[in-house]
């Protein structure tokens, strides 16, 4: 254990945890916006997979990473429009529609991959880590926090941005109102449908970015690349009690525990026979943290409830 607490190792763990947290954070921030407006989107994982394939395909064919991010964003937006049409415009049940989106994304991304690409070749280049001038030279802290890629910086910058959006803008107020009491919001002249529509699109675009971050960090696509990551992101939204800051804490917790487990395995502290048991750690710790720390925050009152004017 003592070896674990050397500064050098800690720096590695923190940096690795932040990288692992990036896709969780992006997806859970987006889902936070959606849920605050009263929409539970269980299709996050499917959107991430489709967007990840889009980003992979664009990067593979053109080598242009900006284009890849754009394609992922567009894919997220497009699937978001479909989901919003179904759940908001057609008032369909959110849970089952989301699972439909998930299954579609899971199968269709794999199908496109097999038909259009086939062989899992890595993309020509990945997102490089950018050292932030000045800050990255701070001993230890610089290596842990300020040598990441643009997607990671972007994800963490999105946290205050989403906070601002939800707390300080008219749109954010509408989102919260619509999520708490759509009838009242409607009677005050807020368009429930339009607000939820936009909230879903923001959420699915963020999920698209999360998919892109997986591909641009890992450099590869394969069937079920996300491995249930989108569902974990949904769990993190609950963990974070529908707050952007909470989503960040949840994502970091999950990522850091994963990174610590990896580090302890590499050092041999966790014996190989117990490696599966150790892989449970992030999930167990997330539940325990919620049991002991919080868990009393009320969900948006209108969550999962379709709204139709009567």
């Amino acid at each position: 254990m003592s070896q674990f607490f050397t500064l050098g190792v800690m720096v590695t763990v923190v940096a690795s945890g932040i990288r692992l947290a990036t896709p969780y954070l992006l997806a859970s921030l987006g889902e936070t916006i959606g849920q605050r407006s009263g929409v539970l989107n269980l299709g996050v994982d499917g959107i991430m997979l489709l967007a990840a394939f889009g980003a992979y395909y664009a990067a593979l064919k053109t080598g242009n990473l900006w284009l890849a991010v754009l394609v992922a964003l567009g894919t997220g937006l497009f699937v978001g429009i479909i989901y919003a049409l179904i759940t908001v415009s057609l008032h369909a049940a959110q849970g089952i529609s989301g699972i439909g989106i998930f299954l579609f994304g899971l199968g269709f991304s794999d199908l496109l991959f097999q038909v259009w690409v086939g062989t899992p070749l890595p993309i020509p280049r990945k997102l490089p880590a950018l050292a932030i001038p000045g800050l990255s030279d701070i001993p230890y802290v610089g290596d842990a926090l300020f040598r990441h890629n643009l997607m990671t910086y972007g994800a963490f910058l999105l946290v205050p941005a989403v906070m601002f959006l939800l707390q300080r803008t008219t749109f954010g107020m509408n989102v919260r109102a619509v999520g708490e009491n759509p009838q009242a919001a409607d009677s005050l002249g807020v368009s429930v449908e339009r607000t939820r529509f936009v909230a879903i699109l923001l959420g699915s675009s963020a999920a698209g970015l999360a998919g892109a971050s997986l591909v641009l960090q890992g450099g590869i696509f394969q069937a079920n690349l996300t491995n249930g990551l989108g569902f974990i992101a949904i769990a993190i939204v609950y963990f974070g009690a529908w707050r952007p800051l909470g989503a960040m804490v949840g994502s970091l917790l999950y990522g850091l525990v994963q990174a610590s487990v990896v580090q302890l395995k590499v050092q041999g502290t966790i014996p190989r026979g117990a490696s599966d048991l150790a892989a449970m750690a992030p999930a167990i710790i997330t539940i325990l943290a919620l049991v002991f720390l919080a868990g009393r925050v009320k969900a948006p009152a209108a969550l999962t409830r379709p709204f139709a004017r009567h």
Partner: peptide, 26 residues
């Protein structure tokens, strides 16, 4: 054809049915 087709179809069927239900009642 790749097995993934079936999974994708499953998803589309779900989406299609929930929305068609709604279109119908509308």
């Amino acid at each position: 054809v790749p097995a993934a087709l079936a999974v994708a179809l499953n998803g589309i069927v779900v989406i299609f049915v929930v929305s068609s239900n709604r279109v119908r009642s509308a």
